[in-house]
Computed example of a mutant assay.
Amino acid sequence: MRTAIAFTGAMAVMVLIAGCVTTEGEYDGGSTGEEKLAGSLSELFEQALDDETNPFVIDVLDRAIETGKIAQEDYDEAHRLYRVCMSDAGYEESYEQLANGSYKIAPPALDGQEAVEEYMSVGSDCSDELAPVESLFILQQGNPDLLADPEQVVVQCLNEAGLVGADYTAEDFREDRDARFQQAPYDPMSAEAQECFSNAGFSISVGE
């Protein structure tokens, strides 16, 4: 059985090369307890706007601050710009829209580490609009309590979906993940579990 774990989105693409799993992302292991990322979504949008220079992203954030959320159509347009850029660069990715409205990216076949690194570099260059919009959009859609620990976001969602009991913890989730979910009290590939994973920014695939 093989378990592949990455983060959803353009800046965190999972690449399988010769049976190995390579992941790229900026997750630092998460926080503990009930730490919050901010007091509100609008506060996060305003913080992001302070450091933003991309005109498209600035317009999206201005609208989000006014309405209280990033609109699906704004996220979709950011993703379209990314797809066009990657296609123009010669990459044929495939995309699956998840229940939270975001897209899971499946990379093309890549031959060797050099090709992987080039692909990741191009993906980064093509994500100027998508990366900042997507990170906030996924947070908005799947983490309304703004929990700082993505693993706690998964646990809360699994509990609300009735897949685990109230005594299931983030440590339990880490242990199940490390054990490839062989003893997990739920099917990690079920639609409900997959939605919980994607809500926290994870892309988890379990197979033979």
Rank of each mutant, 00 (worst) to 15 (best):
K69G: 12
E26F: 15
V60G: 06
A78R: 01
P55N: 11
V84H: 02
L49N: 10
E73I: 12
D28V: 10
E66C: 02
M86K: 01
E43T: 09
A64M: 05
D74M: 08
L81N: 03
Y82W: 10
D76C: 08
D74Y: 08
N54D: 12
E26V: 15
K36V: 06
S40N: 02
C85K: 06
K36T: 07
E46T: 12
E24R: 14
Q72E: 06
S42A: 12
E66R: 07
L41G: 12
G39P: 00
S31Q: 11
G33L: 04
D51C: 14
V60E: 01
K69D: 07
D28I: 07
P55R: 05
A64I: 01
D76I: 05
E26A: 15
G33V: 01
D62I: 03
L61A: 09
G33K: 07
E24A: 14
L44C: 06
A64S: 10
E66Y: 03
D50M: 15
L41W: 01
D51M: 15
E35G: 04
Y27M: 07
L41K: 07
T67G: 09
E35H: 01
V57A: 00
G39S: 11
Q47A: 15
P55Y: 08
L41C: 08
D74P: 02
K69W: 08
E77K: 05
T53A: 15
G25E: 09
Q72D: 06
D74A: 10
Q72T: 13
K36M: 05
E66N: 06
G39N: 09
R83Q: 10
E43L: 08
E66P: 00
V60T: 09
E77N: 09
G30V: 00
S42D: 14
Y82E: 05
L61M: 03
T67Y: 01
A71G: 08
A48F: 10
D51T: 15
E46Y: 12
D28P: 03
Y27E: 13
E35P: 03
L81F: 02
L37C: 05
A38P: 03
Q72S: 15
D62G: 12
G30M: 04
K69E: 10
N54H: 11
D51L: 15
E77M: 07
F56W: 06
L49K: 15
E43G: 10
D76E: 13
G39Y: 04
E24G: 13
E73D: 13
D51K: 14
S40D: 07
L61Q: 04
F56K: 04
S40H: 03
S42R: 14
H79S: 13
L44N: 05
E73H: 13
D76H: 03
L41T: 05
R83H: 02
